[in-house]
Computed example of a mutant assay.
Amino acid sequence: MAGHGSKRVIIAALAGNSMIAVTKFAAAAFTGSSAMFSEGIHSAVDTGNQALLLYGLKRAARPADDRHPFGYGREIYFWAFVVAILIFAVGSGVSFYEGVHKLGDPHPVSDAYVNYIVLGVAMVFEAGAWWVAFREFKRTKGSHGYLRAIQVSKDPSIFTVLLEDTAAMLGLMVAFLGIFLGQQLDMPELDGVASMVIGGILALAAILLAYETKGLLIGEGADPWLANQLKGIVQSHKAVFRINELLTLHQGPQDLLVTISIDFHPNLSANDVEAAISELEMRIKQADSAVKRVFIEAQSWRSHNLASRAD
């Protein structure tokens, strides 16, 4: 399951977005701005999404039982995918619809200064939430670039909030420009255009999030560097003649399953093989805290190949 850092990131975003959403809706009702209404929808969706992620973290933390012997760690992947759907269907869809409606019936934004004040305050809150998410993401990304770090991350709760907050920051800028240019150029249609652009930003964020969480849902292995490290640990053991196969699967952000088929030296006794298996399991778990379960099979290379062909 995800760590305390993930929960801290989500709670910070939830607190900020809930306050921002109420303020944006009030400003939209007072001024009649479509862009501001879209931003209110955006913040409301983000608030609901963060509540879903917290719920997902709680569900994922449940211990294993007979029905789910490997635990519930993957629940966080499911709820992150639901978040992606909500961003696309509700956030992007409503924003785009509101923009089209404003283009069909353009009207000037009244008391635009109210929107500017609200957008400025929202930018401060969003920047704070974004910084918390970014700092946690930077701490966990290692040597990877930012986009690559999202691709290889096994904890969707962190990069989901980071994507949401990034989209929120861009949306605030677009809303400000749409309202400001519409007022300065006497073109109220630009308010509707801004709403549609916000919808496009949300759609792109949702598509990226859905793509990344889909891979986690269907099952992703450990990072290649970790898989190679585990292979090195196994291969270096004096009892190991050959590694037939080493497979890994993430059951959750910090729950890695490792299965290994090993061809041990033929001169070893059964007791020697049992001792080697116990020692390898201990070394593999010590290599990375995410490794929770290790299954080692003693099998000759020839038998393993025959079994593989039969499959």
Results as ranks from 00 to 15, higher is better:
residue 3 G to Q: 13
residue 4 H to T: 14
residue 5 G to M: 07
residue 5 G to E: 12
residue 6 S to W: 05
residue 12 A to R: 10
residue 12 A to Y: 09
residue 15 A to R: 08
residue 17 N to S: 08
residue 21 A to G: 01
residue 24 K to D: 00
residue 26 A to F: 03
residue 32 G to W: 06
residue 33 S to I: 14
residue 36 M to R: 14
residue 37 F to T: 14
residue 40 G to W: 10
residue 45 V to Y: 06
residue 47 T to E: 01
residue 47 T to P: 01
residue 47 T to D: 00
residue 48 G to L: 02
residue 48 G to H: 09
residue 49 N to E: 06
residue 50 Q to W: 09
residue 52 L to G: 09
residue 54 L to S: 00
residue 55 Y to A: 14
residue 56 G to L: 02
residue 56 G to K: 09
residue 56 G to W: 03
residue 58 K to E: 11
residue 60 A to W: 04
residue 61 A to N: 13
residue 65 D to R: 00
residue 65 D to V: 03
residue 66 D to S: 13
residue 66 D to H: 12
residue 66 D to L: 10
residue 74 R to C: 01
residue 77 Y to V: 14
residue 81 F to M: 09
residue 81 F to W: 12
residue 82 V to R: 08
residue 85 I to E: 06
residue 91 G to D: 09
residue 91 G to H: 06
residue 93 G to L: 05
residue 94 V to K: 02
residue 96 F to M: 09
residue 100 V to D: 15
residue 100 V to Q: 12
residue 101 H to Q: 15
residue 101 H to D: 14
residue 106 P to R: 07
residue 111 D to L: 06
residue 113 Y to Q: 12
residue 116 Y to T: 05
residue 116 Y to F: 13
residue 116 Y to W: 08
residue 127 A to K: 12
residue 127 A to Y: 15
residue 129 A to R: 14
residue 130 W to D: 08
residue 132 V to P: 03
residue 138 K to I: 09
residue 139 R to G: 10
residue 140 T to D: 07
residue 142 G to I: 07
residue 144 H to N: 15
residue 148 R to I: 08
residue 149 A to S: 07
residue 150 I to Q: 07
residue 158 I to L: 09
residue 161 V to H: 03
residue 161 V to C: 02
residue 164 E to Y: 11
residue 170 L to H: 02
residue 171 G to T: 11
residue 174 V to H: 00
residue 182 G to A: 01
residue 192 G to Q: 05
residue 193 V to M: 04
residue 194 A to Q: 00
residue 196 M to W: 04
residue 201 I to N: 02
residue 211 Y to S: 13
residue 213 T to D: 00
residue 214 K to A: 06
residue 218 I to W: 02
residue 220 E to I: 09
residue 220 E to Q: 12
residue 223 D to R: 11
residue 225 W to D: 15
residue 227 A to G: 03
residue 230 L to R: 11
residue 234 V to P: 13
residue 236 S to C: 06
residue 240 V to T: 06
residue 252 G to C: 05
residue 257 L to Q: 12
residue 262 I to D: 01
residue 268 L to A: 06
residue 270 A to S: 10
residue 270 A to G: 14
residue 270 A to V: 15
residue 273 V to W: 06
residue 277 I to M: 11
residue 279 E to V: 10
residue 280 L to N: 04
residue 281 E to L: 08
residue 284 I to S: 00
residue 285 K to W: 05
residue 288 D to I: 13
residue 289 S to M: 05
residue 289 S to Y: 07
residue 289 S to E: 14
residue 292 K to A: 12
residue 296 I to G: 05
residue 296 I to F: 05
residue 298 A to H: 08
residue 299 Q to M: 15
residue 302 R to S: 15
residue 306 L to C: 07
residue 307 A to I: 07
